[in-house]
């Protein structure tokens, strides 16, 4: 194992609190994978921040938490939840929220984000981000849940736009209007997943650039980039799958550029969760995102 014994004595921390600003930097970050720990520490300058899935750090102790403590000394942290089921019909799982609150307290992340999706129903956790209908009852429920999260965690959360494969007959809101309204009523910030924009726009016959144009970018505090896989629906139309198993697709980079043109440089995560490559590959993707940010910044200054 690669974590020295003394790291287990790292307690809580408030660490990093003095060293890093309270918000994520306008740099590129990567999702932390345990196999990259040593290289990440050794080449920390290449990576602007790290993101972890909150649910992977809810054990009582051991290596995962010790590693996160060590990383927290060196990087700004984005804590990304995948299990709150904010779009669920049932009330939020308070036990889970309490676990999340403990993590937030211990690691003082620069950002906490969750998805506009549901994953739990009738006590079954389905381990996927499932789609919600964009109607008034769902809107009220999502606002209530975001409110609850923010009051329990005593901080603003970011809500992420979903990638979806189906639509619902009862949807009466456009996705962007729905998200804008959730943010307006709850005061949450937004995480704009540009890959999800490409996936959902393609899957529902819309123009992804128009989506970016219409999105309330003033609320965006983080961007996600990731790779998609491709299939076809029963009529042969492209059906993109949010697979996180490959490099950012070439057609997502121009969409990212169009996003940056509206947002300016903003913390951008390279998401790669399956068939995870070497650290060097992730660092190269991160560098490409930072080059895009620099180009936007210098263009704006010129």
């Amino acid at each position: 194992m690669t974590v020295p014994r003394h790291l287990s004595s790292f307690g809580a921390e408030g660490f990093g609190a003095g060293r890093f600003p309270p918000e994520l930097p306008a740099r590129a970050g990567i999702g932390f994978k345990p196999q990259h720990f040593d290289e990440l520490i050794a080449q920390a300058h290449r990576i602007g921040f790290i993101e972890v899935h909150a649910e992977n750090y809810m054990g009582d102790g051991g290596l995962p938490l010790a590693r996160l403590s060590a990383l927290r000394e060196r990087f700004p942290l984005s804590l990304h939840g995948v299990g709150l089921s904010i779009g669920g019909e049932a009330p939020l799982n308070e036990e889970h929220l309490a676990r999340l609150a403990r993590l937030v307290e211990r690691f003082a992340p620069q950002s906490f984000s969750e998805h506009l999706a549901w994953s739990t129903h009738d006590d079954a956790y389905l381990n996927d981000l499932l789609p919600v209908a964009y109607d008034a009852p769902t809107l009220a429920r999502v606002v209530e849940h975001v409110d609850r999260v923010q009051s329990r965690l005593k901080r603003q959360m970011l809500l992420e736009n979903p990638s979806t494969y189906v639509a619902f007959r009862q949807s009466s809101y456009d996705e962007i209007d729905f998200i804008r309204e959730v943010a307006r009523r709850s005061g949450c910030g937004l995480l704009l997943d540009v890959n999800n924009v490409m996936v959902s726009a393609t899957n529902h016959g819309r123009n992804p650039f128009q989506y970016i144009k219409d999105f309330p970018v003033e609320l965006v505090k983080e961007i996600h980039l990731g790779g998609y896989a491709e299939a076809q629906d029963s009529l042969g139309a492209r059906l993109l799958i949010d697979a996180h198993d490959s490099a950012v697709a070439e057609d997502v980079w121009p969409l990212y550029r169009a996003t940056l043109a509206r947002t300016g440089p903003v913390a951008t995560l390279i998401e790669w969760d399956n068939d995870v490559p070497d650290f060097a590959v992730l660092a190269t993707e991160a560098a490409r995102a930072e080059a895009e940010m620099r180009a936007i910044a210098s263009g704006a200054a010129a």
């Binding site: 209908a133 016959g205 629906d233 029963s234």
Partner: peptide, 15 residues
Amino acid sequence: PEVTSWNGSDPAQRF
């Protein structure tokens, strides 16, 4: 039955 698709493709296949 509420599950649908923009182009009339089979919702079950997308599901």
